[in-house]
Design a binder for these strands. Structure first.
Length: 597
RNA sequence: CGGGAUGUAGCGCAGCUUGGUAGCGCGCCUGCUUUGGGAGCAGGAUGCCGUAGGUUCGAAUCCUAUCAUCCCGACCA
């Protein structure tokens, strides 16, 4: 490609819309343009990067025997109704673009493809003899993100590789799952990324085991918890840990205490001169189920610990059947106006006890009349603890479960924190890092196949639901994550494997016939040798070309300038800025050597 | 969805407090000079001041509504 004939526009100033380095750089360097919120045009350079990432992903997928296909992005509502996800995807997370066509049919743009692929499997897979199978595709996904951000990191339309495997049993699924783990590790390694595989929550997709592949970068949206021995790594949403030991309570006898102006843990600790680990705090949340029922949840947890909303949501989902519901639509800490809707009388906020009476809930349509009470193990194990009394300005000290309060069901809903002890080895402490989730693999099980009636006949002649796995890679997100992990003050530094071009020839003075002649010769020769090369033959000053070459991050820059008098050109490596004069005839071989091809 | 902010030339911004017919830098076009790290000089083009109402003799500026975009949060009493 000749830059003089290309639509190549770089920006000298940082676009105001961008916040993180990779987003700014991709905009400035002319890789992407914003078309709308969360919508981006992939310009020619970007498309080359994405094509390379796709190719690497495809090669690694094909190597495992997975088969590439292409499923429709426009999907009928009925498939989603069959799987039971239509409501959650159009209401709660509201992440699916859904609309009605002119025949009054409900359709949606695919945010993911479990339903479609399961419908295909339902049609085609009949016998265990056909198993296992693994289909994958690389295409644009649509998600109605509440807050798109950071360019390609969280867009409303983005490119994803999604694969789905079908098995006769869990053992077979695990084999493929492990293969995918290795395939993903190879993909990311080939793309030149530093990453970590972590245990993850499986979220709205569902299923049992899942792992996320996190590219480590400060701009990441996820918190990764890990131990230094490398034996544990998990998304904070999923992380399990041991809280620091509670300090023994200084209160040995049970009594009420006047505690004026202590509506926060901080004030209470100061007033009672106690340790926060001696206090049970009682947190009120409200969950809305898919049948429209709101349930008030009262959580007792040690006061130095926080509730992990994801873990709590999972627990509440398990309890949904008790309320005649299937899934959780929303979970939140109710604010003043939300409380007013159902409270029969003002709540003793800041002084709530585990036995807060159900009479606080006024008879309200679609509100369950009883609190759902849960206790986290950190609070359940306390003795002689301090907690509220449901009376303002008053706490109880030296309290104990059973004696003073009925112990609610115990569920682990605490959020892991830096400094906690690891489960597998309490001498290991939990550390934290920011990560960008670029891949996620799931053991789905039979969630979709059972719901949608995708069955096969096993060796014994029994009809059984297919056991499924699913595996995703955010292709466009991965490309931006690579930039986030590799740039300097001058611009992007692409890993060679996904750089849009390997080399760029800068002609300092295009009116010098010798410079142009050598450049043209190299341009042809290098491309023939498999070194993807662009020629900067624009009528610009040398400085402009150097700045642009650095900005767009091409790994090798060749300058047909001063050193030509010795029959040499200057070759500069983008990452290190190391420069070397090399005889014109040796350039190709030298670059191939550096590239390792 | 809650909070905060911003919409003025292709990009980055000033002007708005105190209303009087629009400005700077970069970029773009022309010419000359320059030519290895985003050149210099001279000349030039470019705006429904987000949109719609209102106030006023007069609105980028004041008022109201609306749309869009960005940021923070959506997590505890």
């Amino acid at each position: 490609m000749r830059l003089s004939k290309s639509l190549f526009v770089t920006l000298r100033e940082e676009p105001a819309e961008a916040e993180i380095p990779s987003h700014k750089l991709l905009l400035r360097a002319g890789y992407i343009r914003r078309i709308g919120s969360g919508l981006y045009a992939y310009l020619p350079l970007m498309w080359r990067v994405l094509t390379k990432v796709r190719q690497i992903v495809k090669e690694e997928m094909d190597a495992t025997g997975a088969q590439e296909c292409l499923l429709p992005q426009l999907q009928p509502a009925e498939l989603w109704q069959q799987s039971g996800r239509w409501d959650t995807y159009t209401q709660s997370e509201g992440i699916m673009f859904a609309f009605t066509d002119r025949q009054k049919r409900e359709v949606a743009l695919g945010p993911t493809h479990e339903e479609v692929v399961t419908a295909v499997a339902r049609d085609l897979i009949k016998s265990y003899r056909q198993l296992p199978q693994h289909l994958y595709q690389i295409q644009s996904k649509f998600r109605d993100e509440i807050r798109p951000r950071f360019g390609l990191m969280r867009g409303r339309e983005f490119i994803m590789k999604d694969g789905y495997s079908f098995h006769a049993d869990t053992e077979s699924l695990k084999v493929t799952y492990d293969e995918m783990h290795h395939a993903y590790s190879r993909m990311l390694t080939r793309c030149g990324l530093k990453f970590r595989a972590v245990d993850a929550d499986s979220g709205a997709i569902g299923g049992s085991g899942s792992q996320e592949f996190m590219v480590l970068a400060d701009a990441g949206e996820d918190d990764v918890m890990y131990t230094a021995d490398g034996k544990y790594a998990a998304n904070v949403e999923k992380a399990v840990s041991l809280a620091p030991e509670a300090v023994a309570s200084t209160f040995t006898s049970c009594e009420m205490k006047e505690t004026p102006n202590t509506n926060s843990i901080k004030k209470l600790v100061k007033f009672l001169e106690c340790d926060p680990t001696s206090i049970v705090k009682n947190v009120l949340q409200q969950v809305v189920y898919d049948n429209g029922l709101t349930v008030l949840v009262l959580i007792s947890i040690r006061s130095d610990r926080d509730v992990n909303q994801v873990k709590l949501t999972n627990e509440l989902s398990k309890l949904a059947a008790n309320y005649g519901a299937k899934t959780v639509i929303a979970l939140e800490v109710p604010d003043g106006t939300a409380i007013e809707k159902w409270a029969a009388k003002p709540l003793p906020l800041g002084y709530i006890a585990p036995d807060l009476g159900d009479e606080y809930i006024g008879a309200t349509p679609n509100v369950h009349p009883k609190f759902l009470r849960l206790v986290d193990p950190t609070a359940a194990s306390l003795t002689n603890f301090i907690t509220g009394t449901n009376e303002a300005e008053q706490h109880i000290v030296g309290a104990n479960w059973s004696t003073n309060f009925a112990l609610p069901p115990i569920v682990d809903i605490q959020k892991a924190q830096v400094g906690d002890r690891a489960i597998h080895d309490p001498s290991q402490l939990i550390e934290t890092a920011r990560g960008i989730e670029v891949g996620h693999i799931f053991q789905l099980g039979t969630k979709y196949s059972a719901a949608m009636g995708a069955t096969f006949t096993n060796e014994q002649g029994e009809e059984q639901p297919l056991v499924m796995g699913c595996y995703g890679v955010g292709v466009s997100r991965l490309a931006q994550a690579a930039v986030e992990q590799s740039y300097d003050k001058d611009g992007i530094i692409w890993p060679v494997a996904i750089a849009p071009y390997h080399a760029i020839i800068c002609v300092p003075n295009i009116s010098d016939p010798q410079q142009m002649e050598v450049a043209e010769r190299l341009y042809t020769e290098l491309n023939q040798m498999g070194i993807e090369t662009i020629l900067d033959d624009r009528d610009e000053r040398a400085g402009v070309k150097f700045k642009d070459a650095d900005l767009i991050g091409i790994p090798f820059r060749i300058v047909t300038g001063r050193s030509l008098k010795d029959g040499k050109v200057e070759v500069v490596q983008r990452a290190t800025k190391q420069s070397e004069d090399i005889a014109v005839g040796d350039v190709g071989a030298k670059i191939r050597e550096w590239m390792g091809i």
